[in-house]
Amino acid sequence: MKIVASTKLTRAQRAMTESRSYGSTSNTVFEEAETKPVESENKKTLLVVCSSDKGLCGGIHSGLTRGTRRLMDKTPGDYNLVVIGEKSKAQLSRSNPKDIVLSFAGIGKDVPTFSDAQAIADQISLLPTDYSSIKIMYNKFLNAQSYEATIVEAYSEEAIAASPNFAAFEVDEEVLANLREYALANALFWALAEGHACEQSARRNAMDNASKNAGDMITRFQILFNRTRQAVITNELVDIITGASASEG
């Protein structure tokens, strides 16, 4: 199991490095333009939680859920949730069922593709409510052992248009909506790929630990088995000898 998980991890990590350069390039635009999220009253923020469908990988999904709850406790009622993946959905549907607007399933079978991210971004941008900004919550890959729940921001049209240096890019207003959708898909793709890599590394560790724990158990059972075997043999010998001495006498 550990070897299977290791191979998957290498693939996931490669996909992550590729998508990271993708996402950071898209982010550069907003960094150069100095885009800031617009603080607007009575508009909600959309929080996209990127977990996955599969378990057996330690506390990686609970970490995300905990991060989400912490964020939501700070300003209650300010967030709407989009949950990607069954695991976090199960956890969040117990604590905040009222805030969930969309949930996606079927992610995490394989390395996430850009089509996945695009389809999700489409469905999110088709939501009727107007959100002040979209925050994407994912597990940031620190190294093979550790990860942490992190937020990446996808800006709204107003925020992009209001950024101080945006004029330098000479983007027409008509295509601004396209840029926003595309940036959302980029950010989602990045978050999904990085989350996937974290999950695989967490699973590898979980499988490693499972094998180790099983090793302890195997030695314990081996000793127990040997003792029982010896006891049975002794019993049978006693029976045979008693029978033999009885027939002689």
Binding site: V101, S103, A105, G106, T113, S115, D116, A119
Partner: peptide
């Protein structure tokens, strides 16, 4: 792309 989704 083979995702499923649900509205809440």
């Amino acid at each position: 792309m083979d995702l499923r989704f649900a509205k809440w």
